[in-house]
Design a protein around this nucleic acid. Sequence first.
DNA 1: TTCCTGACTCCAG
DNA 2: CCTGGAGCCAGGA
Length: 122
Amino acid sequence: MKKNLPTKNPALQSSPRNFFEDVFDLVRQIPKGRVTNYGAIAKYLGSGLSSRMVGWAMNASHGVDPPIPAQRVVNRNGMLTGKHHFHTPTLMQELLEKDGVAVLNDKVVEFTQRYWDPEKEL
DNA sequence: TTCCTGACTCCAG
DNA sequence: CCTGGAGCCAGGA
């Protein structure tokens, strides 16, 4: 029993609803101008999760309402590894800059200062 | 069912 | 400092 969800998103229909729900919910809580990484989300959400799963969830975040600020999730080095999964390869950076986050060479500038740790902030 | 792949991370060399 | 391999969990072929 994990289907029959009232959603049009196929990813949400055939997967553990909690997982996506939790990831999306947490990502939405990332403050504007801050960023976090996949591992931190995985760790915060629970023990069994791996960072790959978080990226996998982000892959399903398109077309979700309310929108997911997926641009605020980068890898542990602050690099925009997921940029190619956006509508355009430059969209992720553009969204971050709109958030007031400078990006240089696919990396978040001053990543350690911008870093937002859910375990500490929540 | 087995095998491959992935928006990641850690550890060894 | 950089590279490579293993671990990770779920989904698709």
